[in-house]
């Protein structure tokens, strides 16, 4: 079940993700041209406020978007309802946000 607020949150997070996905793919294609290793990635991302902000924004949008998407599946396919549905949504959002943030921290800090 998708109320109007979650509907807007999913659309807005999708709109945020679209250019970020594109940017991520373009950088990836550019970066692998001369071979790719972890040192090269870390040289680009370590201490970079830009890449830190870029991927943290990405992680936030993914956490919101995916949590709402899985919420719909949980409701429609597995009949998760009421408070449990809210718990599932928040839990998935938190797990994605925290694990994503940890990954961003690992390559930026």
């Amino acid at each position: 079940m998708l109320g109007p607020r979650l509907f807007v949150a999913q659309r807005v997070s999708a709109a945020v993700m679209a250019p970020l996905v594109l940017g991520h793919l373009l950088v990836m294609i550019y970066a692998v041209q001369g071979g790719l290793d972890s040192a090269e990635i870390l040289a680009r991302t370590r201490g970079s406020l830009f890449w830190g902000t870029y991927y943290e924004l990405f992680v936030t949008a993914v956490a919101i978007h995916a949590a709402i998407g899985v919420r719909v599946i949980a409701y429609e396919w597995f009949k998760v309802k009421n408070r449990w549905l809210e718990v599932v949504t928040v839990m998935i959002g938190c797990v994605l946000f925290l694990s994503g943030t940890y990954a961003v921290y690992a390559v930026v800090a």
Binding site: M1, L2, G3, P4, F7, V72
Partner: peptide, 9 residues
């Protein structure tokens, strides 16, 4: 049409 069971589903 925007109620919880509305068009967005």
């Amino acid at each position: 049409v925007l109620q919880n069971n509305g068009c967005q589903n």
